[in-house]
Amino acid sequence: MSPTRIERRFADLQKEGRAGLITFICGGDPNPQAFQAILAGLLAAGADLIEIGMPFSDPMADGPTIQAGNLRALAAGMTLARLLTQVTAFREKDKTTPVVLMGYYNPIHRYGATRFLDDAFAAGVDGLIIVDLPPEEDEELCLPALEKGLNFIRLATPTTDSARLPAVLGNTSGFIYYVSITGITGAASPVADAVGDAVAHLRRHTELPVAVGFGIRTPEQAAGIARIADAAVVGSALVEEIASRVETSKADSAELIGAVHARVRGLAAAVRAARKDSAEPGA
């Protein structure tokens, strides 16, 4: 199979000698129209890969910030089908930026796994992260997704010891996502040293690029991760930006969209500069 957009993007980043920025936003947050505009401007703001949450009523691995983002989107009429339509529209203009859908299995199960994979692939989705599908359930969606040519990205966590790691890496493709804390999204920030050790451990077992996420909020934290990993994932901080605008400015869309993009620009600048000021670029 020819390389996916995700694989090509990480190859390009490696050539540039820098880490990437992966942004996470809940699909349809705060409403489908504003979300489409946020999505359209992410690349220009400096995102290298785009992760979109598939809204779900019961996001068990997410903290209050992303839970609220899911509920805002659902209340505004967001559905999985509508999200795929929005990715299709995005893909007509942007042929290269990888799009990864992240979420929980039930909406896909209800949509029909096979039909979902067909429609997601046709829409221009590149990869999937399904929080509640561990390797033990690979037959459900992971194996059919790989067959379809989509990447299936798995989370490794601080509880993933050497005994468990081969199972986690087994059918993972595109990149491996290291969850830097034992906990839910939006909780405590990771300890840089511990993350460094964990990334080094992962690298001994896989050639896949390593992205690190959960708890990364500021440009400084993102830069810290960019020195040790292939990409930094920022989610709750962006979703919080949306939440605070929705609450204070009665959702003036242009302002909200601009604020999210400004936040992404700050993170992207830090990630791009990170290895320039460190002693050993690309170490």
Binding site: V131, D132, P134, E136
Partner: peptide
């Protein structure tokens, strides 16, 4: 694998799997 026919299973986050 914890299946009763088509039902059951272990649909949890990786953090919990170990």
């Amino acid at each position: 694998h914890g299946h009763f026919g088509n039902h059951g299973g272990r649909f949890v986050a990786e953090t919990l799997m170990p």
